[in-house]
Design a protein around this nucleic acid. Structure first.
Lengths: 338, 338
DNA sequence: TTGTACGCGTTATCAG
DNA sequence: CTGATAACGCGTACAA
């Protein structure tokens, strides 16, 4: 079917190696022959056969990304910016959605290894030993873009969840003696655990006992936020403030308040996490921790590119910046406005 | 580094061909030898080298997806379900984000062709001749998952935008003599054009002149919806109903109303398009055209799988179902409720 | 500066 | 049922 190097070589009247040199911009080839080859390439509409090249070089220009549930708007931004960053260096993205399931993750890792990916980014909520062992065994440069990971040899990019949660806690303690928490799943979410740690730190610092009934569990979705708010209000009739570990849950909670005649922020202040796009357009607009999905994506991919180029990576744990953005869903006070 | 077929063959004491047969589940191999080979594979942790296989067979088990701006929640669902559908048949997804730019699309198509993809899905807003020609020239099974495309030889899956817009128009004419339209971009959006056609049909059917001032342009984003609403109200002081061509713009418009003391649905009814997840949780919740991103993804990928398997495709233009869902943002009437 | 020849790891053909 | 051998298309020593 389509032309190969041999065809080009014949048409240009040179050898295979010469064509190869032209294609790979070798400088040991004369202007003249290079020109001849190039016109032959154009004429035949020659396209390089990547699989042959990969077989030979073991370089695929393919990066695998395994993501946990890409229907999350925040992660979407992340994925998109990863792709944009990769394509700059001519890497394509193979994307697999694990939905956070370990089994799926392992399955994909295996598959991607066979496809000869040059590098891998894993966006997951949980670092099981099995996953980590798998990553080590495949011997492919890998970056974790999600929760903080302790193992010193693994490279990871993440928001500083602990610090961010502490910031929110500090802010909320301005309004009331305690605040309700809509946390993420107990199972399989480091992000949620880390944010809890920040909360716990501040409860302790403020000498307030963190009671179980202040905490309600969601799964980061709108629906779960609605239900979690319901639970919180049932258990705490005097609740004045809520910290939700995702914007989606916060929006669900706001909707619950609306349905039950609870005024925001007059009766209750709510702060979310993520700063997804719609957070500025809800009514009331949502106070939240802004963490840039784009920044997460760019930093992760840049790190991976470095690893793949064998450049030295001075710091294998990077943090993405975050900032508490106060909008209408929480009472204003002398803090950052946006 | 890692073991290859030769190593397995040696260890098992058989020939290369036999190993190959075992790997490919050929039935012309005895139980005994198959077992020997399998244990050898396990022992060596042998993994097939896909690039060699692709070089030989020209089958990559890779599907390219070129998408236009995956920060859109609706398209995200589409992408995710495409991936889920593909993986069932052991196809991996290479994803490239074109942002709707023709140049990017062409660039990706070229790149993906070199990576030997077996099939391609293009999610785009515009079908330029250049794009169509390119798609034809690459000789790879391709499905368009987006606006309707006339060319009889091209296969496409899409919502019936015309019909959906007609449904909304019918509904809105119940409330007032005319309705404002927040349309998508004039440039490069078939979806938007098609929805306009539906609107025009119904204006004509109702003998109402569709004035320019009823129409405002957005780019499907929250912000643009806000601005478009502003423009509509400035030009039409008696505006009672709005049809927004995306939920995101509708939510922007709702926010504008809130900021300007316009009550929804008492003063103005608003209907969106897409039924993104948050539409059920805004205040007021959003009446909208529910079109399933998941269904779009599944149908497109299923079609592509058929094409790749050379199965006959009886109908190369498929529609995804849609349904008008009435929520709080529009006055209720005797129509479907959800 | 250019060409020759080999090998990367598979699958397919053919003979046994 | 099994094995030998020739491709697939490219990059790279080595030779010229």
């Amino acid at each position: 079917m389509s032309a190969n190097m041999k065809d080009v070589a014949d048409l240009a009247g040179v050898s295979l190696s010469t064509v190869s040199r032209v294609i790979n911009d070798s400088n040991l080839v004369s202007k003249d022959t290079a020109y001849k080859v190039k016109t032959a390439i154009k004429k035949l509409d020659y396209q390089i056969n990547e699989s042959a090249r990969v077989l030979r070089t073991n370089i695929s220009k393919l990066v695998g990304i395994i993501g946990a549930g890409m229907d999350n708007p925040f992660l979407m931004k992340t994925l998109k910016s990863m792709e944009a960053e990769a394509i700059k260096e001519n890497y394509n993205i193979i994307y697999g959605d694990s939905d956070g399931e370990l089994e799926q993750e392992l399955y994909y890792i295996n598959m991607l290894k066979q496809k000869k990916i040059d590098g891998l980014i894993i966006i997951t909520a949980k670092f099981s030993d099995e996953l980590i062992e798998m990553v080590r065994s495949i011997q492919i440069p890998t970056v974790f873009a999600s929760g903080y990971i302790k193992n010193p040899d693994l490279v990871a990019v993440t928001v500083n969840n602990v610090k961010a949660a502490e910031d929110v806690s500090d802010y909320l303690f301005n309004f009331s003696d305690y605040f309700g928490i809509i946390r993420g799943p107990y199972k399989d979410s480091v992000a949620s655990e880390e944010r809890m740690i920040g909360v716990i730190n501040k409860y302790r610092e403020n000498n307030v006992k963190l009671k179980d009934k202040y905490i309600s569990e969601g799964d980061f979705s709108y629906e779960s936020g609605y239900r979690a708010a319901q639970e919180l209000f049932k258990k705490n009739s005097d609740l004045k403030t809520i910290f939700s570990f995702s914007d989606q849950m916060a929006i669900g909670a706001i909707r619950y308040c609306y349905d039950n005649n609870i005024k925001i922020p007059e009766d209750v202040s709510i702060v979310g996490f993520d700063d997804i796009e719609v957070a500025r357009f809800t009514k009331p607009s949502l106070s939240t921790v802004s963490q840039s999905g784009a920044e997460l994506g760019v930093k992760s991919m840049k790190l991976l590119l470095k690893l793949m180029n064998n450049e030295s990576v001075t710091n294998n744990k990077e943090f993405v910046s975050h900032k508490l953005v106060i909008r209408e869903s929480s009472k204003s006070i002398n803090i950052i406005k946006s």
